[in-house]
Design a protein around this nucleic acid. Structure first.
Length: 563
DNA sequence: TTACTGACTTGTTCTCACCGAT
DNA sequence: ATCGGTGAGAACAAGTCAGTAA
């Protein structure tokens, strides 16, 4: 037995070794990964591109306070220009925005300015605003030559700062420019809107690279805050932002090995969930009956996360951010229970602001047991109380971790999104023309976007662009009826059909955003397999950037791939 | 147990270059 | 040559989740 074991393990080792060699030739995302948690061995880069220094306004651009001309000091003027640039936005009229801006602006004023400027409503920024509008107009009017110059300069900067070397590969960096100073906007009803986002100096910046690399140089006469060599993290540059006090990073582009591998891993975790999801579902249904309140809450929350693809819902510090919630942080005021609604029983109505203050509104019939539990959770509570008062994301994720290695709340979103795409593609695709297939693909993608509540405001140009398409369709139809020759008829019919598909697609997509799910939730191998199976050109599904991001999947997946 | 930090993913919206129509 | 619509990419905000300190 011992010898047999030895023999068997020798052969399996050999096989693993051979596979390893073969794959390392073709797939850099399958190169050796270390087990000690280090993310790289060698990292060299040129550091960030800093925001350009402030250029004072020309003398003829004036600022008026209470109708009188007032010359501002450079620091006060700079902050004033941030406001002036936003004058056309609705939010500069919001009380909170103006209040926060004014408070931070005053900090930049000289004592003389402070004593003169006492009321933001008496400030007149219109000349500044007009000046910036004229500037951007002038930029548009530049000659071809001038534009080319700028383009070449940008390209040069990209070549110099936009790449790094990580281990044996030259990799594209994601955001190598430091965010310029400006006024913080925030999304939704944000308590900090209008605050000054300060300029980031070299002294604020931490550089991360390997010891044996050529370290990036700070600009003449300055120094970095720190240069460290931490290969347990993937970022190249970091700094602390002053609005929330959080850390911002410069990291690699999604096309990089390190991001691609992580992405792959994410979908592999979701596929492992697929294998045990029925067991987990049986488990939480059982837990609805538990005698422990915390277990029941956990089970109902998990049911929502699974069924409705809700986010986990961490607690947030009050007053620091917009008031938004996810599953675990739902409050009593966010749901309504209807024992009967129309012809359905036990309906739960959800109405709350989720991530980015996007509204989530849904009515869903639930099982009686869930309904009864929800009634129980609501007992003796005020609207602003937590629905799940015995639960938070940490408790939930610890529980999930016990059920499956690597399982967290967000894996359910990935799993449900990907499995939905696969099912929908199977259901919707028919062996018709390419445009018809693409419509089917987009419809499958749409089903996922709806599940994940990826809405968008209908584009401003929507009606117009629908009209344009319709005009084209009408013309094509006329052209068709005017054509006699068989060959030509067929060609025009095809063109017409393509336009009609496009119109349907656009119409159905009016308020749905496909991008987020495509980029973050759908296992790209499903799409790659579909493309191969139905002979659809890859470019119809993924543009250049997406093909780069999903290069690993394009290489890996064959037409028989199953999520 | 809770608070807090750090690293990383996910999200919307803005901007601008490109391209076809006029 | 110019114009306007459009898609891609940039910008940057806002989540998730693990780890550590209090």
């Amino acid at each position: 037995g011992f010898l047999l074991d030895l023999g068997a393990s020798f052969y399996s080792l050999l096989v693993i070794f051979l596979i390893h060699i073969l794959s390392s030739i073709h797939f850099r995302w399958e190169e050796e990964r270390s087990t000690d948690g280090s993310k790289w061995k060698f990292l060299e880069h040129k550091g960030p591109v800093l925001a350009p220094p402030y250029e004072p306004l020309p003398g003829h651009v004036r600022f008026f306070y209470d109708g009188k001309l007032l010359r501002l000091s450079a620091p006060a003027e700079e902050v004033a220009t941030f406001f002036a640039k936003m004058l056309d936005h609705e939010y500069t009229t919001k009380e909170m925005f103006r209040k926060n801006f004014y408070k931070d602006w005053r900090k930049e004023m000289t004592s003389e300015e402070k004593s003169k400027i006492t009321d933001i409503n008496k400030c007149n920024f219109t000349e500044m605003s007009e000046y910036f509008k004229a500037q951007s107009e002038a930029r548009k009017q530049m000659s071809k030559d001038e534009k080319l110059k700028i383009k070449e300069e940008n390209e040069r900067i990209l070549q110099e700062y936009g790449f790094c070397v990580m281990d044996n590969h030259k990799e594209r960096i994601g955001n190598f420019r430091i965010e310029p100073p400006g006024l913080f906007r925030g999304r939704g009803d944000h308590p900090k809107m209008g605050m000054l986002k300060r300029r980031i100096r070299p002294e604020d910046i931490i550089i991360n690279c390997s010891k044996d690399s050529k370290h990036p140089k700070p600009p003449q006469g300055t120094r970095w805050k720190e240069v460290r060599h931490d290969n347990k993290v993937t970022w190249l540059v970091s700094w602390t932002e002053n609005i929330q006090g959080s850390i911002k990073y410069i990291m690699l582009n999604p096309s990089s090995r390190i991001k691609g591998e992580k992405d792959w891993q994410k979908y592999e975790t979701a596929r492992r969930l697929k294998k045990c999801v029925e067991r987990l579902r049986a488990q939480y249904r059982e837990d609805w009956k538990s005698k422990e309140m915390r277990v029941r809450q956990r089970a109902v929350a998990l049911y929502f996360i699974d069924k409705l693809a809700l986010r986990a819902g961490n607690e947030k510090e009050e007053g620091e951010t917009a008031d938004t919630v996810g599953c675990c942080s739902l409050r009593v005021e966010h749901i309504k229970l209807y024992p009967k609604m129309d012809d359905q029983e036990y309906v739960v109505e959800f109405d709350f602001l989720g991530k980015d203050s996007i509204r989530y509104y849904n009515k869903m019939p639930v099982e009686k047991r869930v309904f009864k539990n929800l009634q129980l959770f609501l007992e003796n509570k005020q609207p602003e109380d937590d629905l799940f008062d015995r639960l938070n994301t940490s408790i939930l994720n610890k529980h999930l971790q016990e059920l499956m290695d690597g399982l967290t709340a967000k894996v359910f979103r990935t799993y449900n999104a990907s499995i939905t795409l696969q099912q929908q593609l199977k259901e919707l695709t028919t062996d018709e023309s390419i445009p018809a297939k693409i419509l089917s693909y987009n419809r499958a993608n749409r089903a996922v976007a709806i599940l994940c509540n990826h809405q968008r405001a209908a584009p401003k140009t929507f009606e117009k662009s629908m009209q344009n398409l319709q005009t084209k369709i009408d013309e094509k139809q006329k052209q068709l009826s005017a054509t006699r020759k068989q060959k030509a008829v067929q060609r025009i019919e095809e063109q017409l059909m393509k336009l009609q598909m496009q119109a349907t697609d656009r119409e159905e997509n009016k308020q749905i955003a496909l991008g987020t799910s495509k980029l973050n939730y759908l296992d790209p191998r499903i799409s790659v397999a579909w493309v191969k199976k139905w002979d659809v050109p890859m470019e119809k599904i993924y543009n250049k950037t997406q093909r780069e991001k999903f290069a690993w999947a394009i290489d890996m997946a064959e037409e028989d791939y199953e999520f």
